[in-house]
C-alpha cells in the first residue's frame, strides 16, 4: 500500500529520479521521441526540489526575511530572456 503522491510531491512509480536515469540512458540509446526532451537544467532543478526541497524550504521560510534581499541579488533569466535581478 502506497500513496499516489509522495511526501516530496512526486508521483508514486514515476519519480523524478527514475525520469532522470531514463533521460541519461536516452542520451546513449535511442529510446524514442520525447519531443524536445526534458532538458538538463529542468531535470536538475526538479530533482533537487523533489529530493532536497523539504529541508531547503524549511530553512528558507524560517529565515525568509533575511534571505529574500540576498536572493533578489542573484541574477536570473526572465521568461522573455532578459536578465532580471542582481546589482
Amino acid at each position: 500500500m502506497k500513496k499516489l503522491f509522495t511526501s516530496t510531491y512526486d508521483l508514486s512509480g514515476l519519480s523524478i529520479i527514475r525520469l532522470f536515469k531514463f533521460m541519461c540512458y536516452s542520451k546513449i540509446f535511442p529510446f524514442g521521441n520525447f519531443g524536445t526532451g526534458a532538458g538538463a537544467k529542468c531535470l536538475l532543478v526538479l530533482s533537487v526540489l523533489h529530493t532536497f526541497g523539504g529541508p531547503v524550504f524549511t530553512f528558507y521560510t524560517r529565515y525568509e526575511e533575511k534571505l529574500s534581499p540576498l536572493i533578489k541579488k542573484i541574477p536570473r533569466r526572465g521568461k522573455n530572456g532578459n536578465i532580471i535581478g542582481g546589482d
Binding site: 519531443g35 529542468c42 526538479l46 526540489l49 531547503v56 524550504f57 528558507y60 521560510t61 521568461k79
Partner: peptide, 23 residues
Amino acid sequence: AGEKLRKSITRRYLDYSDGKPFW
C-alpha cells in the same frame, strides 16, 4: 514551508512546459 515547496514545484512544471513540450 511545505506548501511553498509544493507550489514552487508546480510552478516549475507549468513554466517548463511552456518551452519544453515534454513537461
